[in-house]
Design a protein around this nucleic acid. Structure first.
Lengths: 292, 292
DNA sequence: TCATATCTCTGACTTTAGTCAGAGACTTCC
DNA sequence: GGAAGTCTCTGACTAAAGTCAGAGATATGA
């Protein structure tokens, strides 16, 4: 049995049993679409725009769904003070109650399903689902080249810097004369962000070191995404970008504290070299790889 | 994060990504319902009755779906020769082709999804999904008391005997003077079958040994269902039945070849005892447990 | 053999889900 | 300040999915 068979077999048994979890949104007297929407609005509210994107709905259809929920007194729709074209949706107290009820139904259905399992089996299931979840998410992560000043890039870089600050014994302060933005974009550089469910989970960039050499900079993978091969995938993508920009060789420098990264560079074919032109005081270990 | 959370989290990410596998039944120019039906008919055909039950459809609705597929030349519906009220559905050659296409779409979608994973990750995913599949199926196995002459019971017993015959060095022949049927039913006995997706996956019975003692007989778990705690669950159910029938003690005899079973009896609280009244030449090891 | 039950089918619905074209209010960018 | 773009909403649709009440044919068990 191949993996594809396993996946399909699992899919069948899963959707028949647990998949019904989400259908338990039914039986609340509301059509499934309305319940899903209510759930997606959530206790913190959401912008109509985002709902449309997340649920992939037609704008007219969404408007109608929302106005039905509003008629039922479950949500409130009002203009976004920051941008008069947009509208924000929040749950009313009744809506909050309905939201909680959806969650409880879903929970109790899940509990009932797991009830026949022993403690040991539950632990095994927990681990298996956790692993499968991570890998499936990892497989569907979307890598794309973005400008380093976009929101996605800024968020990712922010988390990267914050982590360096936590992990370096002396903390980390981004170089003030940081030419990051300009160097990590065309025509001599690129910046790649990996996103899952809209949130950035990894990033990295290439910039010009000399005419034939691109330098990989600011590679970061979110902590709970490590061990899923995302780093290697991102690195290969950056090498592709570097090749496209005309570089024949990739180099990078890193800090010896970042042990996972060091091991990964080795696996992907990087070879340790002496220090090249350096501008970051944090780089201690250096690698290169031919792109030809 | 509790297991329920893991399940729900997994459910969300899974249905969004892989769940779409089944939706790939769309895009074949046929509505989802019709494709699902075509898939459920399958290459071997099916009875309309069973389709209605498996897909949980209204009879009128199903009739209409089927006649649409028949109009498109994909299926053929004709009376069941064995029962004039029923009708049987089979795929026409065109229907077979459409069926194969559905499968290919689903496969290639699954492959595309897994493509970014490395070999090692795929192996991990394969194992994780396999484990989760087994446990989820095990959790949703349905145990019920049936008469030992019903089809389900006969099938299960048949597989049990066949396995003993394979595993015992000298083979196994059911005792000819087998009073099985009569002894494993009320008022002094019971027979329990565990079924998953309609197929029996485990069985076992209790019969009277003396007024206060019930004997557990013919416990069997299908080979690919072992390690999922099904045996222990079945045994506990049989003890419940024995208690209900008024027994204060359960005993059982087994063969020392069946090592998994021996270990399981110990885990569930059975204690080895000397041979009690024996009528099976295959029983070598004996256990008892108080039911009070 | 007659009442009762089972199985499929038909007709007449309703609800849910979704699409499309454009109007109107507002922002943004030159 | 005006053109171009964004966001939401309305109206007018269509298709899919599902429900309900019976009719008619056949089987089953007393």
């Amino acid at each position: 049995m191949t993996l594809v068979d396993t996946v399909r077999r699992f899919n069948r048994s899963y959707t028949q049993r647990i998949g019904a979890l989400e259908e338990s949104f039914l039986g609340t007297g509301r059509p499934l679409g309305a319940s899903r929407l209510l759930f997606e609005v959530g206790p913190d509210g959401a912008a109509v725009r985002d709902l449309r994107e997340r649920l992939d709905l037609d704008s007219g259809y969404l408007t109608r769904l929302l106005s039905r929920l509003a008629d039922d007194g479950l949500v409130e729709v009002r203009p976004d003070p920051a941008d008069g074209r947009r509208r924000l949706v929040t749950l009313t107290p009744d809506g909050q109650a309905a939201y909680r009820e959806l969650n409880e139904r879903s929970d109790s259905k899940a509990r009932g399903l797991l009830e026949p399992l022993t403690e040991r089996q539950r632990a095994r299931l927990d681990e298996a689902l956790g692993t499968a979840d991570l890998l499936i998410r990892a497989a569907t992560v979307h890598l794309r080249v973005v400008d380093p000043v976009t929101d996605a890039a800024r968020t990712a870089l922010g988390e990267y810097y914050a982590e360096l600050d936590r992990r370096f014994p002396s903390g980390f302060v981004p170089e003030p004369r940081d030419d990051g933005a300009a160097a990590l974009r065309a025509p001599s550089g690129a910046f790649v962000v990996a996103a899952s469910d809209g949130a950035p989970v990894a990033c990295g960039g290439v910039r010009r070191l000399d005419d034939s050499t691109g330098e990989i900079k600011r590679m970061w993978v979110a902590p709970d995404w490590r061990g899923a091969g995302l780093g290697a995938r991102l690195l290969r993508r950056l090498e592709d970008e570097a090749r496209r920009l005309g570089y024949a060789r990739a180099v990078l420098g890193t800090n010896s504290v970042l042990t996972e990264a060091l091991a990964m560079y080795g696996r992907v074919g990087y070879r340790e070299i002496g220090p090249y032109l350096v501008d970051s005081p944090y780089d201690e270990v250096f690698f290169e790889k031919s792109l030809i």
